[in-house]
Design a protein around this nucleic acid. Structure first.
Lengths: 143, 143
DNA sequence: TTAAGTGCAAACGCTTTGCTTCCTT
DNA sequence: AAGGAAGCAAAGCGTTTGCACTTAA
């Protein structure tokens, strides 16, 4: 998945459609999340973007990812360590989490789609929200 | 599920087996989590136990739930608001979360058991760790 | 030009920790 | 009697917020 011009054009279009200014910070934050396919945390994104925009502040990253999430441009979830992680993959998918190092990888578990979410008395509009699978990643299995 | 003498006896036995002292605080914290079937947060537990042990401190509740978790006496998970929640149900189960009020309820989704966790290159020991289903609870559907 | 967005700094909320005193065992 | 546990207070850490300055449109 390369950072195609198309993809960035779509990003800018999405911003403009919502009346959002296309600032350097927003562009670089989006690129950072997209390129870093490892579900970067706010600190991770901050460190990456700081190389290109040294003056960027951490709170701008926080505000920017909030904005992106509201627009549906990124998905946000909490890692087991409690920190937020971000992803430009906004399609339904599941997470593999390494029990040792915390590494997170996306997978698509097609079996889940065949299942129907149970009906529960008193509850409505039930939908599968998140699925986490734990195990050991390649590096940690060796160690 | 009532707070049977049996259940508390088992709790005390588990503590002694691990060389843990059976203090008032531990007994009351355990009771509080067990009785409050709504997955209380640390603050919730603190408020409940404070009625019986006014001198208890918040950090004791934190340390106590840590201990219980390590012993396998309670399960811990993070609610969507980022706070820890606790449960004496340590069997595999899933969570229903109200998208409006945040209420959490346990369910057992048997369909999941028929599914096999996918094999993924580079990963080992994969097992389903958590499943969250979102919807509206009875109270919030009305409102 | 101007309203949205950024940077700075301080505040916040939940959780953790060092240290002294207390209380099961 | 003795070591684990509790209480107190302060610190830690990720995240949020108020305000004045900056910048895309």
């Amino acid at each position: 998945m390369s950072m195609s011009q198309n993809h960035m054009a779509e990003f800018e279009q999405a911003c403009r459609a919502q009346g959002l200014k296309v600032t350097h910070q927003r562009v670089e934050v989006y690129k950072a999340i997209h390129k870093a396919s490892d579900h970067p945390s706010v600190e991770d994104i901050y460190a990456i973007v700081k190389k290109r925009i040294p003056s960027i502040s951490l709170d701008t990253v926080y505000r920017t990812v909030d904005t992106f999430e509201k627009l549906g441009l990124v998905s946000r979830f909490q890692a087991p360590d409690g920190r937020y992680r971000f992803d430009t993959n906004v399609e339904a998918h599941q997470h593999l989490v390494c029990a040792n190092c915390g590494k997170i990888e996306d997978i698509h578990w097609s079996g889940l789609e065949q299942l129907t979410v149970p009906r529960v008395t008193g509850w409505s509009d039930l939908a599968l929200a998140s699925v986490e699978i734990r195990g050991l990643c390649q590096d940690c299995r060796r160690g």
